[in-house]
Design a binder for these strands. Structure first.
Lengths: 345, 345
DNA sequence: GTTAGCACTCTTTAAAGTTGAGTGCTAATA
DNA sequence: TATTAGCACTCAACTTTAAAGAGTGCTAAC
């Protein structure tokens, strides 16, 4: 027995209906609301076959059928025809409020949540490495100095330091020069003890200060390497009865709140294969996150420049509206492309 | 009929028991587990009185009693004796991970949530006004310039700008000087059109750039004036059955996620009256937030310097362990005081 | 190959009955 | 006069039973 065209059509109808209602779908429903013109009995026979093939199951003997993960998978892979999403003016909303990367990403999460009624996540871009572009010291007053550290890719970090000895303007300039000479263009691994010693030997009374600054630089590079995750619309999860069981809901919400497990999606998945925006669909157990075994996650990849990319994800029930979600994500990725190309925030 | 000592003792016993169990408390329980040595019948008589006085109610005729908001209020105001909390090494945890204000506050929220099993919120400090301390322009390359804006209180903001005309090193220095001459020490209201015109007339080809920078400064000051709110442990709410009703839970979690309504607690309440750390207890409707009418919120005030303060809040069920919460908060406020006094992050 | 028809299964919902915690009141007691 | 024992009463919560309804699988006819 194989999956012929008619079986495929029936499976599609079952899934579509289940996506809408969240209720098991019976043979009569399919018989009435498709143009196949088959009686419910015939549908029943076909359904029995589809069940044997593993695409659908009955929650209990006298109930309709619901799709299995395998069924959803087939649907997503072959049957779904993407719907171009109507959310067109997201971009204006984005530009209006967000003029910096972090805000922008947070805004993206928020907009998607508002538009889809699912939970959303956005990760910060992942860089391969981070080199020091330059360091700028400024004396704020006699005992305080401001250090601005600029990393490759124009990531800017600043820290205020307090010196024990009174600062001399010329010394600060010299220090600035020394730091830049030694550190410019270096990655964190390249800052070794020898280098630090050599640097310290040149700075006279400011050894303490230099130490602190070096620490700060290390921290800055480190934390820029970490992927941060923004989420939004977590409470949308509670809108779907099949996830609203107190224990499931707590687990899912807690995963969303803690965020660590979500970075998992950054590692996995292809990276932007063709113009499909690297869209990836994880169904149930495919998420590899235990608390999400009753959810599906759809992720897309955005790229801010060659090789530097992050992920946007939509988290909902397995019966999420895949077409709409994929459409919305493609749309959003397009908007992000525009923004990153034209006007770097 | 008035509230004599015995009634008070009984009320206290009822509330204590209810805080622990979350179940209505019957006369027999009180009779057995207090040292009053009274029969359940006597307790019943007293309970009837307490009900008439408005301190307790019965959820239904044949149930035990639970405290009313008025009952909780009396308890919090007069009967509660603060327990010094055992969470002593929070401070080390704090200092280890957090070297910047935002991180620190987020960390505070997280720690409190982990230690209390309630949801928590922390607001950023509220400043009365924000003056420009100085501005530092640096040319990154021929077309990009980095502006670092330092506000009073050492708030640092930075932005990268792209210039249409190629940048000349000396010009950037001049621009820097001009900006500082005109803007240093000014608040946002003081930057008027006349001033802007005058400034622009001095900068030759860089008018466009100056415009952008001024905009950025305005935005920076503005957003620093906004109070941000960090929350943590929102999912703890779901641990309490009386809040786990799907609708209540959604409303509360959604309030916590959106955060706007939470700033409400910053406005209200006394500001640090004596060494009680400005601890304030809002019970049920007292929160003035509709979704929280079944919750209590305990807030405390931290002060980073004279007159600049923010709030820390614990959000839980009405039957939250007030003593422990107040103790924990006082402890935490103490730790924060230490940190802000010794080592400004 | 398709379909009508029917017995069967199993969830869902409602109704009815049972239990038990806790009350209020009364009359007896210290 | 304050306290207590005792008892009838109430009501939510749980259990049991019954009925309804949706949907299936199978058989026999088309």
């Amino acid at each position: 027995m194989d999956l012929d065209d008619r079986k495929l059509k029936i499976l599609q109808a079952i899934i579509k209906n289940y996506l809408e209602t969240g209720e098991p779908v019976g043979s009569r429903t399919i018989s009435k609301y498709t143009d196949l013109n088959l009686s419910s009995a015939t549908i029943r026979n076909e359904m029995a076959d589809l069940e044997e093939l593993g695409y659908i199951v009955q929650p209990h003997t006298s109930a309709g059928r619901i799709p299995t993960d395998k069924g959803y998978r087939l649907y997503v892979d072959t049957m779904m025809q993407e719907k171009v999403d109507e959310v067109n003016n997201m971009r204006d909303d984005l530009l209006e409020k967000a003029d910096r990367m972090e805000n922008l990403l947070q805004q993206v999460a928020k907009l998607l949540a508002a538009n889809t009624n699912y939970a959303t996540m956005v990760t910060t871009p992942k860089y391969r490495s981070r080199k020091i572009k330059f360091i700028q010291l400024t004396d704020v007053d006699a005992y305080q100095v401001l250090a601005v550290i600029v990393l490759e890719g124009n990531i800017i970090k600043n820290r205020m330091f307090r010196s024990d000895v009174a600062l001399v303007k010329e010394d600060v300039l010299k220090l600035n020069l020394a730091l830049n000479t030694f550190l410019q263009g270096l990655d964190i691994e390249e800052i070794n003890i020898g280098l630090v010693q050599k640097l310290k030997s040149q700075v006279g009374a400011y050894q303490e200060l230099v130490s602190e600054i070096l620490d700060a630089i290390a921290t800055a590079i480190q934390e820029e390497g970490d992927i941060r995750v923004y989420t939004s619309g977590a409470t949308n999860i509670l809108k779907y009865p099949e996830l609203s069981d107190m224990n499931k809901a707590r687990d899912i919400l807690s995963t969303l709140e803690n965020k660590e497990e979500l970075t998992q999606f950054v590692e996995s998945g292809d990276i932007k294969p063709d113009e499909k925006r690297g869209i990836q669909v994880y169904i149930g157990d495919e998420t590899k996150v235990d608390s999400m075994k009753d959810c599906s996650v759809v992720t897309a990849t955005y790229e801010i420049e060659e090789g530097i990319y992050g992920k946007v994800g939509i988290i909902g029930p397995k019966r999420m509206d895949y077409e709409r979600v994929v459409g919305t994500l493609q749309n959003m990725m397009g908007q992000l492309d525009d923004i990153f190309k034209n006007k770097k925030p």
